[in-house]
Simulated scan of single mutants.
Amino acid sequence: MEKVATRGRPREFDTEVALAAALRVFWTKGYESASLTDLTEAMGITRPSLYAAFGNKENLFKSALDLYEREKLAYIGEALSAPTAREVAANLLAGAIATISEGECRGCMGVIATITCGTEDQSIRNHLDRIGRDSRKALVARMQSGIDAGEFPAGTDAEVTTQYLMTVLRGLSVQAQAGLSLDELRQVADATMAMWPSR
């Protein structure tokens, strides 16, 4: 039986379960390629229910991104608490590989969305930029702490080191989406750590 949320009546479907289903659709198809039919079928709701709960496709995508950040990017905060900058990098690579090679959902949802969103999707790009900016700021600060602690060669720049690591992480995401195997992704991570600048 159809479960439709109407005014004055409690919503009869679990919005978190529906949002998790929408996340999988966006993750596998991207924002523009995910149709409303794809989304409502995966979520098990009608279009009126989707609009009542989330407003529109754009707001649904932003909510899905926030869920992705909370659940799938939790490894970033855990990695940043590692005792050395080298361990931070190793943990970020391992966490990213575990996330981007997750079953049918391959690649980083944020990277996929950044590549596939058209120029008209400025609101979404701003949302993606905010997520990336917060992570980058925290990583720069952590790399600077490692520099101050003498973990890097003299003259190492925290911004450049962060950009290098983030470039590798984005590259891993693109390669995972293109079909690179788990072992191959790990080989890239191992090579990255073999070249990691350390004193």
Rank of each mutant, 00 (worst) to 15 (best):
K3G: 14
A5L: 10
A5V: 05
T6V: 15
R7E: 14
R7A: 11
F13K: 09
F13S: 13
F13V: 11
V17Q: 15
A20T: 04
L23D: 10
R24A: 07
K29P: 04
K29W: 00
E32W: 03
E32M: 00
S35D: 13
T37M: 01
D38E: 04
L39H: 05
T40S: 13
E41T: 09
E41V: 08
E41A: 15
M43T: 08
G44C: 15
G44N: 15
T46Q: 04
R47Q: 08
R47C: 01
P48I: 04
A52K: 13
F54E: 01
F54W: 12
G55F: 05
G55N: 03
K57C: 02
E58N: 12
F61V: 06
F61W: 05
K62L: 08
K62W: 03
L65E: 04
L65M: 07
E69D: 13
R70V: 04
R70T: 12
E71Y: 00
Y75A: 04
I76K: 08
L80R: 09
S81A: 13
T84S: 15
A85I: 00
R86M: 05
R86E: 07
E87I: 00
A89L: 05
A89P: 06
L93H: 10
A94M: 00
I97F: 13
I100P: 07
I100R: 03
G103S: 14
E104Q: 05
C108H: 01
C108K: 06
M109W: 00
G110T: 01
I112L: 12
I112R: 10
I112W: 05
A113R: 07
I115H: 02
T116N: 15
G118A: 00
R125W: 08
D129Y: 12
D129R: 15
G132F: 00
D134C: 02
S135E: 12
K137T: 14
L139Y: 10
L139S: 11
L139D: 10
V140E: 15
R142D: 00
M143T: 09
S145N: 11
G146P: 10
G146V: 07
A149T: 09
A149H: 14
G150I: 06
G150A: 09
F152R: 04
G155R: 07
D157G: 05
E159K: 11
T162K: 08
L169Y: 00
R170M: 14
S173L: 12
Q175C: 11
Q175N: 14
G179T: 02
L180H: 10
S181K: 06
S181T: 13
S181I: 09
L182T: 03
L182G: 05
D183W: 01
V188F: 01
D190T: 05
D190S: 11
A191M: 12
A191T: 13
A191D: 12
T192N: 00
M193I: 04
M193F: 01
A194L: 08
M195W: 13
M195V: 14
R199Y: 03
